[in-house]
Nucleic acid binder design. Structure first.
Lengths: 207, 207
DNA sequence: TCCAAATCTTGACACTGTAAAGATTATAGA
DNA sequence: TCTATAATCTTTACAGTGTCAAGATTTGGA
């Protein structure tokens, strides 16, 4: 159904978020301007102010939307491997890495502090905490199945998330040298990272 | 010696970098404009173009300078604890965390991809790789002293750096919940993270 | 000494975020 | 159903931004 060209857009708020995500994917953070977003949504340059207080608010909405999608992907993978404890953590981590690679710039926006005063956006806070709760639950499941050491699950969740998140950040910023990347596939690198904190590391090799 | 007010500044390039760092610390990335930097350095708004091709080039210089300082701090701490293998890794990590906390916004600029085409700035590339080489050497020393598992030192270095870097990122973005932060000090959290990948983890507690 | 290169200033331009005022449409209450 | 009020969108305006070009000033080497 082709959209009718009415004065009122109908769902401008979501259209703006969508346009923002698209511009982010094409031109990166430097190319994201409110005016371009408005224009891409087929609306005048000041129209966004009916839905977002300022540019930061749009960015907050884009991030929040990203966290929702991340939650969906992670939780579905976790569910899929619920009965295969030896694979669950790695598959979840792999999904996380792929989410970052699929849409690098949005991932950066979500985690790299482009959003200055995140506490002012309750939906953002709620959605990102929901993700951490999910990680915590997955960690507890893996502790129960003996894949992860015992210990306060929120702290261990920090380790698991942190080790993968740090890896992604270094990867996205090109801080991982080519000599490393040429020797092992991304998937292998992710597995290597995770196995560092998992129980039963049997792999031994020389440096 | 108070600066003379000559037509030629004398050391404008470094003055601009310094001004940039200061503005970053005070107003964050959103407040960093070339014109403000120029003005703070006491020079007209287009003067920076005699030393930097564009804004990105200034940001690259600020980042590069940051990496130099990071190298200085990390290497001196590593040297200091050279003969105390059980503490070296933790102290180095702690220095890294403090470097990030001392100047959050510059740290973000260094690692959060504000710099779009980093490969175009060879000094930046060189300086950041020099840091990774340092981490790699520290990891090798710790493997030799039995604090870290054996394995390809660059991959283990990735783990060590990644787990701390990820932790810092989550911390800087407020993604670490208050319940976690209230229960343990930052230093304890850093130690907990590192001990996850160190040999001889004896700590066991309930979740 | 003198000229070319380096450095800095001035002026200009297109683009940005954002505010204010007005136009258009939706909606709730009579 | 009619209408007033709110929601939505456009137009206009302004200060701040990055960047370029032309000109002024200074430096250093031939």
């Amino acid at each position: 159904m082709p959209k009718k060209k009415t004065y009122h857009h109908g769902d401008l708020k979501n259209a703006l978020i969508k346009a923002g995500v698209e511009i982010l994917a094409k031109d990166g953070m430097g190319g994201l301007s409110l005016r371009k977003v408005a224009s891409r949504a087929g609306v005048s340059h000041a129209a966004p102010y009916a839905h977002f207080a300022d540019k930061q608010a749009l960015i907050a909405a884009i991030s929040t939307e990203g966290f929702r999608q991340l939650y969906t992907r992670i939780s579905s993978v976790a569910e899929e491997y619920k009965n295969k404890p030896s694979m669950q953590l790695i598959e979840v981590a792999w999904a996380y890495v792929q989410f970052a690679l699929d849409d690098r710039d949005r991932f950066k926006v979500m985690f790299s502090g482009v959003l200055e005063k995140e506490k002012e956006y309750p939906e953002f806070v709620e959605e990102s905490q929901r993700n951490f709760q999910l990680v915590k639950m997955i960690v507890e499941a893996n502790q129960a199945s003996g894949m992860l050491r015992s210990g306060p699950s929120d702290l261990v969740a920090l380790s698991a998330w942190g080790i993968i998140h740090g890896f992604i950040m270094l990867l996205l910023e090109g801080q991982i040298s080519h000599t490393v990347l040429e020797r092992a596939s991304l998937r292998e690198l992710v597995e290597f990272q995770l196995k560092q904190i998992m129980i039963g590391l049997d792999k031994e090799s020389t440096n």
